[in-house]
Simulated scan of single mutants.
Amino acid sequence: MISLECDNLFSTWRDQARWLLSHQVDPSQVSWGEVQAADLFATDEPIPEGLGPFQTRVPKALLELLESAACYHGDQRWSLLYEVLWRVSHGDRTAMLAGDKLGSELQRRIKQVSREAHHLHAFVRFIALPAEAGPELPEYVAWHEPAHDILKSASQHFVGRMGRHRWMIATPLDGVYYDGEQLIHQRQCPEAWRQLAQNVEDTQSEMWLTYYSHIFNPARLNPKVMEGHLPSRFWKNLPEGKLIPGLISEARMGKQKDGQAKLIGTKPGKKIANPINVGGGLLPMAMYQSSDV
């Protein structure tokens, strides 16, 4: 068995996979360890140096699929990619397709990665730092906890949307910082970034919470659909997250029937006079009551 360590970098894995493939090393004889693994190549058998005699071409689309699936956090994160590469390089392109058992798992991982990138775009909440913070700090910061390794690629989404503003996104694993000109990715998020993103005070939070609580429509609440679009694991990092359980509880306790916010229901409203002015004359309200036809 050959044990490899790619440090969770697709570029490193690709070089290792090319070397393995050139020496016709079967997928069953290879495993990729964790970052803490002591040896890059841990095996009882001698390891040939340099590329082997076997050469093959693989579709460019395959490399794109493998790179996308490489962002998935899960068991056999890198071993599955090599198994797909092995089969395609030996003429079996069905390994790329959802109709194949292996291809189905590959496509499932790609879909999960794509969905997690969408979650980053939808649920990141940037908080503005005070103007006196200084030019050495970003103008906006955010804390996010993705399930997969999508920050580096998915954060490009904000480059064209934040203009020349400086911003930063920190996660438990990595972080990105945009200085107004280029996006800088740190594979190990600096502790200073984490502390800044998690402890910054949002001076606009009360306004946002007031707005969110008033647009929430209990009459249209579907908890299962809501969970599908806004997974509860993100609630703790959203400013409106602390409101959601209470709003759901109110909806289940009867607000779905009247759809009326508590603050609106306590207001006295306006008194409407009984007569109605029609064409300059006053007609009694009784004239406009419903009747059988």
Rank of each mutant, 00 (worst) to 15 (best):
L137D: 00
L137M: 00
P138T: 04
P138Q: 01
E139F: 03
E139R: 01
E139M: 04
E139L: 04
Y140E: 09
Y140I: 02
Y140D: 00
V141H: 00
A142Y: 00
W143E: 14
H144M: 08
H144G: 06
E145N: 09
E145D: 15
E145R: 08
P146T: 09
A147K: 15
A147N: 15
A147R: 14
D149F: 14
D149K: 13
I150C: 12
I150A: 13
L151G: 10
K152R: 15
K152E: 12
S153M: 14
S153T: 08
A154Q: 06
A154N: 07
A154R: 11
S155Q: 07
S155L: 04
Q156P: 15
Q156G: 12
Q156Y: 12
Q156T: 11
Q156M: 08
H157E: 06
H157Y: 11
F158K: 00
F158A: 00
V159Y: 08
V159S: 04
V159I: 07
V159D: 06
G160E: 02
G160V: 03
R161T: 10
R161Y: 08
R161D: 07
R161Q: 02
M162Y: 10
M162P: 10
G163I: 05
G163S: 02
R164Y: 03
R164C: 10
R164V: 12
R164D: 13
R164L: 13
H165C: 09
H165V: 06
R166V: 04
R166P: 01
R166S: 05
W167S: 03
W167P: 03
W167Q: 05
W167T: 03
M168I: 04
M168A: 05
M168L: 10
I169W: 05
I169S: 05
A170W: 04
A170Y: 00
T171F: 05
T171L: 11
P172Q: 13
P172W: 11
P172L: 07
L173F: 13
L173G: 04
G175A: 15
G175Q: 06
G175T: 12
G175N: 08
G175W: 03
G175V: 14
V176W: 03
V176A: 02
